[in-house]
Design a protein around this nucleic acid. Structure first.
Length: 448
DNA sequence: TCTGGGGTCCTAGGACCC
DNA sequence: TCTGGGGTCCTAGGACCC
């Protein structure tokens, strides 16, 4: 917590709906709901006119329609939202080098580094923030923003929520706890339904109640990170810096289908398309990743994921697709699937050109064809390590991809190998990871 | 015929290494 | 021969945010 109110949080009001109303004058003053319009859609944003009828974010579109049948229901136009967001973020960056976007419609700005603002008194930051809000209106063509300014990120975010829409709240330093203690625990970012219920079970409803618990009690109740974090936030203790550069950690694509899927061949082809999309986005960002994860939500809403990790990062759509499809093989989809998704994580900002080019100096070129008289490459590895029974290999399956897992020791024949099998004529087979420990197998498996 | 999509962070258990 | 502890990586799941 700083001694001055120098952290600003800006939140564009009902952002997606406001962009639609700006671009289509006939929608102004009317209820507008942006989100999925299908049977399984949910609301992303409701205009304030729609909120009067009880329409809320994350509500199913079906329910929103029954609450407000005369609203305009629109699917998102994300390029328009991105362009408007960019204009706002550019404006904020012209004010301070330290801007941390949280999403398309929200950002923190560090006023300690703000251009042309040396008076960080309450009056000083109030005037600055009011000016900023009117400039947001200018660069967005009339969109309003709610702003909070306080001595920490936490309080600034709480403050921006207090006078929505089109409001400004500055929390004078020293008054943070007066504001916070009477509020419900759910004002704390990170306290959602599950945490509210856990806290309620021990009689805690307000931030003031939370104050009465020791850190040990909170850690026991909520776990180490969450417990310790809440213990601090309940005391308005928050020293987190405004971080302008945040690295992407994962890229994913998922889809919920209008009717549950039961055809595995169709599932595989949808997964392949998603994998290609993910890889395209990775390449567009100059990223590649080692871990491929699929997500499956069954008809009953139970959700499972399966993942596999490569020895080096990839942005190759065909490879991501093969791994994704292979991961699906292991999953029971009886009863149908409502959602499929593919993601890549473990990101690096580089792509390894070729597998197995980073061996120890002096080791033979692993991509060189092996001695034709001996069992070679992965087939030998599978054969000789006795791993065949564990891999799901069957006659007629070819090894189409193999690579070392982490921990492979060059020349030792020891480590972890991932192999994917494929039958000659049909669909991809399973991927199996298995341990190998056989000094005779000093050669890495060749790609076939 | 309830319940999106794109993310982040955390936890817990097992493998493995030193 | 037995015991063991810490650290890291991986997988799966869950809570949460906008």
């Amino acid at each position: 917590m700083r001694s001055q109110a120098s952290v600003l949080h800006l939140d564009l009001d009902a952002f997606f709906a406001a962009v639609e109303q700006r671009d289509k004058p006939s929608l102004r003053g009317k209820p507008v709901v942006v989100g999925g319009v299908g049977n399984r859609g949910v609301v992303s944003t409701a205009s304030y006119e729609a909120r009067v009828y009880g329409v809320r974010s994350a509500m199913s579109t079906r329910e929103a329609r029954s609450r407000c049948p005369h609203a305009a229901f629109l699917t998102g136009r994300f390029h328009a939202y991105r362009a408007t967001s960019q204009a706002v973020m550019d404006l904020l960056r012209s004010c301070s080098p330290l801007v941390e976007p949280l999403s398309l419609d929200e950002a923190f700005v560090d006023l300690e580094r703000a251009d042309g603002l040396d008076d960080l008194s309450v009056d000083g930051v109030t005037a600055y923030a009011e000016d900023l809000r009117s400039r947001v209106r200018e660069v967005t063509g009339g969109l309003t923003a709610s702003v909070g300014v306080a001595s920490s990120k936490f309080l600034a975010k709480v403050a921006s929520d207090l006078d929505k829409p089109d409001g400004l709240v500055v929390v004078p330093p020293g008054t943070e706890l007066d504001l916070l203690l009477p509020m419900k625990v759910s004002v704390i970012p990170g306290v959602g339904p599950a945490t509210v219920e856990r806290l309620r079970s021990v009689g805690v409803r307000t931030v003031g109640d939370l104050h009465g618990l020791s850190e040990d009690e909170l850690v026991r109740l909520l776990g180490k990170a969450h417990g310790a974090g809440l213990h601090l936030l309940a005391r308005a203790e928050d020293d987190r810096a405004v971080e302008p550069e945040r690295e992407t950690k994962s890229v994913s694509v998922e889809g919920t289908y209008e009717h549950d899927l039961t055809d595995r061949v169709l599932m595989a082809s949808l997964l392949r398309r998603q994998a290609e999309d993910v890889a395209r986005r990775l390449r567009a960002s100059g990223l590649s990743g080692r871990t491929v994860t699929i997500k499956v939500r069954r008809y009953d809403f139970t959700t499972v994921s399966r993942s596999t990790t490569l020895s080096s990062p990839t942005d190759d759509g065909a490879l991501v697709a093969r791994l994704a499809v292979a991961l699906l093989e292991d999953l029971d989809t009886t009863g149908g699937v409502r959602l499929l998704g593919v993601g890549v994580s473990g990101l690096a900002d580089w792509v390894q050109d070729e597998l197995f080019t980073d061996g120890e100096p002096g080791s033979e070129d692993p991509t060189e064809p092996a001695d034709a008289s001996a069992p070679t490459g992965t087939e030998a590895l599978v054969e000789e390590s006795g791993a065949r029974a564990r891999t799901g290999w069957a006659p007629g399956m070819d090894v189409v991809h193999a690579e070392h897992g982490p921990g492979w020791v060059w020349g030792s024949g020891r480590g972890v190998v991932t192999v994917r099998f494929e039958t000659a004529e049909t669909a991809p087979g399973p991927v199996r990871t298995f341990a190998v420990d056989d000094p005779a197998l000093s050669r890495p498996p060749a790609l076939t």
